[in-house]
Design a protein around this nucleic acid. Structure first.
Lengths: 349, 349
DNA sequence: CAAGAAAATGGTAGCGCTATCAAAAAATAT
DNA sequence: ATATTTTTTGATAGCGCTACCATTTTCTTG
């Protein structure tokens, strides 16, 4: 019965095992073959009730935790999905991640987080590094990457969703909104309310090209109108609200002719409103203020903030669902989804 | 020279490879042994310049991306660290994660994100699942877990850092602040400014036991004083700011005798201040408002918000550094770190 | 220039799991 | 009862990489 080959006197492998309980241990205890344990865990229906419960007992008794590396290596399948975003200090990304996380978790997937700090070089490295985990798909913020990044992702032949912005050319799938459009809508709104000298205030605009696109959209629309003009302020500094606070003071001093400010984010705009409150600057009397994102706080400040509402969590959900659909082998309803936007005209303009 | 064993006519393995370039491919192209490629990539100094550059060329030419699974399985080492937090909708966790991420990234580690939604059962499952990735360490929010979770983590024999709160009993390492202490300090402050009827406003307090601890601390101090009393409001609802906004109105109506409100977060407190502004309620004349966290916005609102500043990012940095120190084999400066807190007394009280 | 030490390279054998195929057991049909 | 299908279980061979030890090459040194 016990026809062990001559060398196998001591079963203990040469390389010390890390003491972890393995599938083989469970199999021994349950008196079945390892593969049966594997099946009992991964496709319970294909194992008889008897063995299944015996195996479950053994698993509990030993406190067995399957080694995902080994499983993934053998099956060439993982349930970890890299999500690459520029930064975590921007609420927008957080909410999208939240949406993604909810959907992924619900389907038993795990989220591997990468941040690029708006650096495309770093993004490329990150993509490469994360592909090493042989993920079933990739989620990444933005449509603009280094050529190298695009190549790597295309060659990987995986489902890829690019999030946050909506555009014609994507690697594989795309969920987002048109930032140019957002800028145009805001321009339209400000024009209709009679503003003619409009400032756009953002920060790190070279990196944050989506904010820049909003400016471009606004700029284009204002040019068309022939009755209004704009100025672009790329304002350096730290936290967004503080930045808006600072910007309002400085800009009113340096450019008193302006009658409206369109901020790159609601947080900045709120900072500006708070500054105006503190100093008794009339909004929108002296200057109108508008933001972007539609954060809850935008309805709470006085005056309430005119902004563009972006469906951030929805974006995350949609993106994750599309990816999972592709991973499951099907094709999503659409390859490109424009989640749209909504201008909320409020008291601040 | 070519003494292939009889079966090996076609080198192509039975199981179709996924088309991915492997280390063996690189080795063939560079005319070296696989192990040499491995070394060239993982400990370049141990390979001669000649081979190293030949290998680098081959890597680039083939676009080789190492399979981390395989590497991790063979070496029993990963560079992925699970970070488990209750939720992403609370800025506090975000900033801690940001700190962690910065430190981990700087050392070549990756962050695997898990959220429990304040559910300890889910936390336990998550811990188990994530241990399956054979991580070199674990970071987790909070000191309270299910007994099962504690056992699993202790048995895993890994470095573990518990973050966010500081306490006597931790699994392995602990970085945080004392929430009871925070509550006591705020009580002290409110007492010293003459407030006597104090409300504590939080949400989901059964789950968010850290907020609850702040209440407990305050409560204890007020009892001691014998001159003041408190009320606890566990206020249901969605977004924090909106919640503070709603709470202020409701509570002033239902409990007009209160002269101060201590909110579980700055966001709620800011919501309350914004409501007061809109309705012309005097702060701190009619009612004083205090928050917790020390978010940047707390200095911008009018009146500026009295709050307790917690060093969130520092917490993340410190925690990650301690973990990495342990992973590297050393022992960190301390096993438990109290990052402290600072009460900022401002206009709202 | 031989002998010994140090550095560079390679062969072999797994890491823990699952895909594939084969065999055994149970269920159904003839 | 036997033949046939279906279900359940198992044996074997890797997945792509690195640890370990053996070998070769290069560098010292007397």
């Amino acid at each position: 019965m016990d026809k062990s080959p001559p060398e196998t006197i001591n079963t203990e492998a040469r390389r010390a095992s890390h003491g972890a309980v393995t599938l083989a241990d469970v199999a021994t205890l349950a008196r079945v073959a390892p593969i049966t344990v594997s099946r009992a865990l991964n496709s319970p229906d294909s194992v008889s009730e008897t063995l299944r419960s015996r195996i479950r007992t053994a698993v509990d008794q030993l406190g067995y935790v399957p080694n995902r590396m080994a499983g993934a290596l053998a099956s060439a399948k993982t349930k970890v999905i890299p999500v690459i975003v520029p930064s975590l200090s921007n609420v927008v990304f957080i909410e999208v991640i939240e949406g993604v996380q909810e959907t992924l978790t619900a389907h038993g997937y795990q989220l591997l987080l990468g941040t690029t700090d708006y650096n495309l070089e770093r993004e490329a490295e990150l993509v490469s590094a994360l592909l090493g985990w042989a993920p079933p798909g990739v989620m990444i913020a933005g449509l603009r990457h280094l050529p190298r990044t695009n190549t790597i992702l295309k060659n990987a032949g995986l489902p890829v969703v690019e999030m946050m912005e909506y555009g014609a050319r994507c690697i594989d799938m795309n969920v987002g909104l048109s930032h140019v459009r957002a800028g145009m809508e805001m321009a339209e709104h400000l024009l209709s309310r009679g503003y003619r000298k409009i400032g756009f205030v953002g920060t790190r605009l070279r990196d944050d090209y989506r904010a820049r696109q909003r400016y471009d959209g606004m700029h284009r629309r204002l040019l068309e109108s022939k009755i209004a003009s704009d100025m672009l302020f790329d304002y350096p500094g730290g936290g967004s609200q503080q930045l808006g606070w600072n910007a309002l003071g400085d800009i009113l001093k340096s450019n008193p002719e302006l009658d409206a400010l369109f901020f790159a984010s609601d947080e900045m705009a709120v900072g500006a409103i708070l500054r105006a409150q503190r100093e008794g600057i009339a909004i929108p009397g002296r200057i109108a203020i508008a933001g972007f994102n539609g954060l809850p706080v935008s309805t709470l400040v006085t005056p309430s903030l005119t902004t563009i509402i972006s469906p951030r969590k929805l974006m995350g959900h949609t993106a994750a669902e599309m990816l999972l659909a592709r991973i499951a082998g099907g094709s999503p309803a659409a390859r490109r989804v424009n989640v749209g936007l909504e201008l909320a005209a409020r008291e601040s303009t």
